[in-house]
Design a binder for these strands. Structure first.
Lengths: 138, 138
DNA sequence: CTTGAATCTCACATCAATGTCAGGTTCTAC
DNA sequence: GTAGAACCTGACATTGATGTGAGATTCAAG
């Protein structure tokens, strides 16, 4: 498939797909004229790249992980070096903390939403809204 | 407490603390000479701000949420406007998806780590390592 | 009072992924 | 072959929180 279709199917901009290639994350065949030609599994690959980006990993680290990932279609999967394993363990722990943070933030949002929806009001006698002019908060 | 101590206790740079103030996230009294003087609860506040940043919220949205947050010390807590509740619900769902993404990425990392540690090897007969020259991966 | 540490403001730099624009080439359908 | 869509490369801009440095002022302790 060509870059336009891959972009459409993954929701990732064409610019980013070319960037992934530049970073060694995503290879593509070329037509005789030089247009990129992606295999079907590029779709999954791009999605996974995005997930890893979202997890806070940088291109260079992703590039080193990808060859070690187990491919659904049993593609070649290398073993990570001990040094890479160290780095990945660090990242893994960071991701754990990040998930905890997200859960806390979600709770905060839920709390604000619930309160606004009529949960136990902070000031039952007078409903006060955000736009009324906020007393200096902290 | 002054900015240096607050920075030390929260692990956030002084530059960022001043930036928070500029964005209306964090207020501080001033000494006669103009130095910032933070109350004790600024510590929690800064930590929460960081969590919300980590959850992908921008300054402007955080600024609108903070006055609606339930304070431990029972400080003034306003009700969110319906419009804000809408936005927060969207953010909440985004955070949910983000957590799912993170879990997937964590699984990927765990998989790579486990495989390297001697889990079911992809190619049992010859141990291959990342540095051996990677066959063009996708 | 003096001195060094801490703080102030202001400005500019950084990072990394992505957007955007320009000028040229290739592809596809007629 | 021709028109228009899609793609190519390359360069520059953007974003938003944060780092960093300069030059001036304030604070705290001797």
């Amino acid at each position: 498939m060509r870059i336009g279709e891959l972009a459409a199917r993954t929701g990732v901009g064409e610019r980013s797909l070319r960037y992934y290639e530049e970073q060694g994350l995503l290879a593509a065949d070329r037509t005789p004229g030089g247009h990129r030609d992606y295999p079907e599994r590029a779709v999954d690959r791009v999605i996974r790249i995005q997930e890893l980006y979202a997890a806070g990993l940088h291109s260079s680290k992703i590039a080193r992980i990808l060859p070690c990932m187990r491919d659904e279609d049993g593609g070649p999967s290398l073993r990570a070096t001990p040094a890479l394993v160290d780095e990945l363990t660090t990242e893994r722990n960071r991701i754990d903390r990040m998930i905890d943070d997200l859960r806390r933030s979600r709770e905060v949002l839920d709390d604000v939403i619930d309160t606004a929806a009529g949960g136990v009001p902070a000031q039952p006698d007078k409903k006060r809204y955000e736009h009324e002019g906020v007393p200096p908060c902290l």
